[in-house]
Amino acid sequence: MRAELPFNSIREINWYLYKLGLFPAKAPSLTVKSGGDYIKQALHSRYKNAPEKVSLEINHLHQHFESEAIPDDIFNWVDLSNERQCTWLFLDLRNIMLASWLDENFLVERSMNSRCMDIVEQQFIFPRVELFVNSNPDKISRAIAFFDVLESEKRYKINYIYWLMRSWKIIDKQNYLLKWLDKKNNEQIDWVMEYLSKQESFVSLKNACMPVANVSKYSILVSAVDLFNHYEPKNTPRLELLIIKMKKAWSQKKHRDGLKGRKAYNVIMSTDAKQKLKVIADARDYKQNETIENLINEAYEKHLVEKKRKN
């Protein structure tokens, strides 16, 4: 019998804690050593009247982990420097865990064992698989934790991950839909997120726009579109029409905002003055109406200075 747990990583510690139903208050700060000590102490306490069962339990856990755990390098196809790819993967798995609108057929079609619905129904039954992430490596760690917790055969997990890899190769080519967005324009990003959140006929798109701590709204928006193409590839034309409509709505909003405090005027001037106005506007790289407004402001400022000097 194996006398000690082969505590090799925090990942294994988390898996043992989950299988044993042990969730210490300080779990997030556990190290491999402190986690291992906690597990051994808990097992000896649980089997204090039958200490021989500790070795049996330890041996069983180790064999179970070895047979069920997906390979550590199975996500090597993910580029950790690619914010879009990492966020897409993380949000895809988050949606499976949290979205009640996904039915069993969705998962079965993607080579997943129907038992994975256990985790959907219980909504994050493993506390250590958190929605809080600080970096792209964090997102991949959450993805691995998701599959560690998933009550499904190892082959189904691997099949699904390979399906994700194939899906990304297709999705990666569809990055043109939101290229018009300015990632530094918070007003625009907020407006687009609100616009998409109201699209009742695009359920997966609406749910994908849920915020995530420490993940930029822009990244979530891009991933929301990626996820829609991921879930509903046949509806990509519908999505393209929606984005065209949304882009036009944004342009109209900006136009209306630009007209605030402004009024149209009919001004009659000589042809010669009109030509001179064009020359000045071209030289300053302004529109002609902007040039007129600037000339008026300059003249007004000069007037105030002269008036103050005379007084």
Results as ranks from 00 to 15, higher is better:
residue 6 P to I: 14
residue 10 I to T: 13
residue 10 I to Q: 10
residue 10 I to L: 15
residue 11 R to D: 13
residue 12 E to F: 12
residue 15 W to N: 01
residue 15 W to Y: 09
residue 15 W to E: 03
residue 15 W to C: 05
residue 17 L to E: 00
residue 18 Y to R: 09
residue 20 L to W: 01
residue 25 A to K: 09
residue 26 K to E: 14
residue 26 K to D: 15
residue 27 A to F: 01
residue 28 P to M: 04
residue 33 K to D: 14
residue 35 G to L: 05
residue 38 Y to L: 14
residue 38 Y to N: 05
residue 39 I to L: 04
residue 40 K to I: 11
residue 40 K to M: 12
residue 47 Y to P: 00
residue 48 K to H: 13
residue 52 E to R: 03
residue 52 E to C: 05
residue 55 S to F: 09
residue 57 E to N: 05
residue 58 I to C: 01
residue 58 I to F: 02
residue 58 I to P: 01
residue 59 N to C: 12
residue 61 L to S: 00
residue 63 Q to P: 02
residue 65 F to G: 04
residue 65 F to S: 06
residue 73 D to W: 13
residue 74 I to R: 02
residue 77 W to Q: 07
residue 77 W to A: 13
residue 77 W to C: 10
residue 78 V to T: 06
residue 79 D to F: 10
residue 79 D to P: 05
residue 79 D to L: 11
residue 88 W to M: 01
residue 89 L to H: 01
residue 94 R to A: 08
residue 96 I to Y: 00
residue 97 M to A: 11
residue 99 A to S: 09
residue 100 S to C: 06
residue 104 E to D: 06
residue 105 N to F: 05
residue 105 N to L: 07
residue 113 N to M: 07
residue 114 S to P: 12
residue 114 S to V: 11
residue 115 R to V: 08
residue 118 D to P: 00
residue 119 I to F: 11
residue 122 Q to F: 10
residue 122 Q to P: 00
residue 123 Q to T: 12
residue 124 F to L: 12
residue 126 F to H: 08
residue 126 F to D: 12
residue 127 P to C: 07
residue 128 R to G: 06
residue 129 V to E: 03
residue 130 E to L: 11
residue 132 F to Y: 14
residue 132 F to I: 14
residue 134 N to S: 15
residue 134 N to M: 15
residue 136 N to Y: 04
residue 143 A to D: 02
residue 146 F to C: 05
residue 146 F to S: 04
residue 154 K to H: 09
residue 154 K to D: 06
residue 160 Y to L: 05
residue 160 Y to V: 02
residue 165 M to I: 04
residue 168 W to N: 01
residue 168 W to C: 01
residue 170 I to M: 04
residue 172 D to Y: 02
residue 172 D to W: 00
residue 173 K to A: 08
residue 174 Q to D: 13
residue 176 Y to P: 03
residue 178 L to G: 06
residue 179 K to Q: 12
residue 181 L to P: 02
residue 190 D to G: 03
residue 191 W to D: 03
residue 191 W to P: 00
residue 192 V to F: 09
residue 193 M to G: 06
residue 194 E to T: 12
residue 198 K to H: 11
residue 204 S to I: 10
residue 205 L to K: 02
residue 209 C to V: 09
residue 211 P to G: 04
residue 213 A to H: 11
residue 213 A to M: 13
residue 214 N to Q: 12
residue 217 K to D: 09
residue 219 S to G: 07
residue 221 L to G: 06
residue 221 L to I: 10
residue 225 V to C: 03
residue 226 D to H: 01
residue 226 D to N: 10
residue 228 F to M: 06
residue 230 H to S: 07
residue 231 Y to M: 03
residue 234 K to Q: 08
residue 239 L to C: 06
residue 241 L to V: 14
residue 242 L to V: 05
residue 243 I to P: 00
residue 244 I to V: 13
residue 244 I to K: 13
residue 245 K to D: 15
residue 246 M to D: 03
residue 249 A to H: 11
residue 249 A to Q: 14
residue 249 A to F: 11
residue 250 W to Y: 15
residue 256 R to S: 13
residue 265 Y to G: 07
residue 269 M to T: 11
residue 271 T to G: 12
residue 275 Q to G: 15
residue 277 L to G: 04
residue 277 L to C: 06
residue 277 L to D: 02
residue 277 L to F: 02
residue 278 K to Q: 13
residue 281 A to Y: 01
residue 283 A to E: 06
residue 284 R to I: 05
residue 291 T to Y: 03
residue 291 T to N: 04
residue 292 I to E: 01
residue 297 N to T: 07
residue 301 E to L: 13
residue 301 E to W: 03
residue 303 H to S: 14
residue 305 V to C: 06
residue 307 K to L: 09
residue 308 K to A: 15
residue 309 R to T: 12
residue 311 N to Y: 11
